[in-house]
């Protein structure tokens, strides 16, 4: 039981970060049919922006702010204007290819011009351990989970409870009707790119203290976000949240499940993908998705 609790909380904390990345992923998909193969690198980069700011003498809170703003400029504005806009008319494949290129560029750029080494990252929350039900946690772990969930709730409120949020939903569901209703669809699309950048930056700042900042981190994060988005339901923010948590938890229980099934724990990485294939074959709309529902 203690082990179960230990793994569940660890899985949820990582899963909440996957959820942030997966939400951004689905948002881009819904509003602009962009499948962002660089999503993992989007989560990798902001931590390095914060590190650069700190190297220049900024205290951590300022550095974190700079990371978020920097992400909005680079991963939101620039990405939209330089990569997505010129390509959107050419159909999805060139755009997919281009995002693969963006991923390579960010990854190799950080490696060449910052460092190939994993970088320690300031601990924002106290690492003080405490015991509960026989399992050991740290406050930092709980705080990461809390912050991630708070950000997700804030986003939900924004999408459902504000005028701009509802306009974004309308634009994603039916751009033509939205235009007729006088909504500036392009602006709404632009907002989703900014939101994606903010989510990526938050995920980056939350994950870097425990996983460190490393140029190659995006490979695993991107795959997790991708799987989470599909498992949850590709056209649902709710789906991305569920998917993220499921992937995070599944990964932590994988060694136990595998050894129970008589398989080597070396196949741990296969479990989320196995989930993905099952979902595709038997429930293509995702765990919580329904075929016809609001998009965001």
């Amino acid at each position: 039981m203690a082990d179960f609790l230990q793994l569940l909380v660890a899985g949820l904390a990582t899963g909440a970060i996957y959820a942030l990345a997966a939400i951004g992923f689905t948002l881009l998909w819904q509003t602009s049919q962009t499948i962002n193969f660089a999503q993992g690198e989007f989560v990798m980069l902001p931590a390095f922006l914060a590190l650069i700011a700190m190297n220049l003498g900024a205290p951590f809170p300022l550095a974190a702010l700079i990371a978020i703003l920097g992400a909005m400029v680079i991963l939101g504005l620039t990405f939209k204007l330089a990569i997505v806009d010129p390509l959107i008319k050419s159909g999805p494949l060139p755009l997919v290819i281009s995002t693969i290129g963006v991923g390579l560029l960010l990854k190799d750029g950080v490696k060449e011009f910052y460092s190939a080494e994993a970088q320690p990252f300031p601990k924002v929350f106290p690492e003080t351990p405490f015991s509960l039900g026989g399992a050991n946690f740290t406050y930092a772990q709980i705080a990461v989970l809390g912050v991630a969930l708070a950000v997700i709730m804030a986003l939900n409120w924004f999408l459902a409870g504000t005028r701009t949020g509802r306009q974004m939903q309308a634009s994603a569901q039916n751009p033509t009707v939205a235009r007729i209703l006088g909504i500036n669809v392009n602006r709404m699309i632009f907002y989703t790119f900014l939101i994606n950048a903010i989510l990526a930056a938050v995920a980056s700042l939350l994950i870097a203290p425990s996983q460190f900042a490393k140029f190659s981190q995006g490979e695993q994060l991107g795959l997790a976000a991708f799987v989470a988005a599909i498992v949850g339901g590709f056209n649902q923010v709710r789906g991305a949240i569920v998917g993220g948590l499921v992937v995070g938890v599944a990964d932590n229980f994988a060694p136990t499940l595998l050894s129970a099934a008589g398989l080597s724990s070396a196949y741990r990485q296969a479990l989320p993908l196995f989930l993905l294939v099952l979902i595709i074959l038997f429930r293509p709309q995702g765990l919580v998705g329904r075929k016809e529902e609001r998009a965001i």
């Binding site: 793994l7 695993q220 932590n252 070396a266 990485q269």
Partner: peptide, 20 residues
Amino acid sequence: DVSTEAGQADFAADVVKVKG
């Protein structure tokens, strides 16, 4: 005998196994 992957997300499960 615990196998881990370079760059894996969590080490919680591995430590649980070792602890056990």
